[in-house]
């Protein structure tokens, strides 16, 4: 097994910080010495490449530019995700509430329309429904203005939804509506 210097030990050697034991290896290992010489030479060569120094006048000009840029940052409107996090959070909560309501109510498509007890939905008091408490809890801190856009159906949305119903579902819907309006 070879006992050559590790990469970090080569760097320690370049810095003059190699341990005595590893230094002894370096003294006796031509391969490690050659590697170290190459690294030191490369470091010196890279170090010799100076960057040009800007004019002394540049620095004050630069500070002024930074001051103006940071002033613009302070006066600029907040980024959309910072400024809009409250409405977005409100919309998210509202959407979650709607999804929760949809998931917790009975699924009408599983039951034959003829078997649907038309009075079940109307007669069930919302206060007795556990899901209502959850929805109230989620939505209690939300301003109506924030959620209005999220929950208000778009124009034509009801027509589109009816278009997608099957014949049996439409019949059940008609029956429910008639029940509601007392026919």
């Amino acid at each position: 097994m070879t006992n050559h210097l590790r990469p970090d030990e080569f760097v320690d050697a370049m810095d003059g910080a190699l341990s005595r034991a590893r230094g002894a290896h370096l003294e006796n290992c031509a391969e490690c010495r050659a590697e170290l010489d190459g690294l030191v030479s490369m470091q010196h060569e890279a170090h010799a490449d100076d960057a040009p120094e800007p004019s002394p006048l540049f620095w004050d000009h630069f500070s002024t530019r930074v001051r103006e840029a940071t002033a613009r940052e302070k006066s600029a409107p907040e980024s959309w995700w910072r400024a809009g996090w409250q409405p977005i959070a409100a919309l998210t909560v509202a959407a979650a509430a709607v999804v929760l309501m949809l998931q917790m109510r009975p699924t009408p498509s599983v039951v034959s329309p003829a078997m649907v007890p038309v009075t079940s939905t109307a007669e069930a008091g919302v206060e007795d429904d556990g899901s209502w408490d959850i929805v109230m809890g989620l939505a209690s801190g939300i301003a109506w203005d924030d959620i209005r856009d999220a929950v208000t159906p778009a124009a034509g949305a009801a027509d589109a939804a009816i278009e997608e119903l099957t014949g049996a579902q439409r019949e059940a819907l008609v029956r429910l509506l008639k029940q509601e309006i007392g026919e």
């Binding site: 970090d8 760097v11 320690d12 190459g38 690294l39 490369m42």
Partner: peptide
């Protein structure tokens, strides 16, 4: 720190090979 030293070692080695 060890990784920083190793990065420097590899950077100088790659420079040597490229040049």
């Amino acid at each position: 720190v060890g990784a920083a030293k190793a990065n420097l070692f590899h950077a100088l080695g790659n420079l040597r090979r490229a040049l």
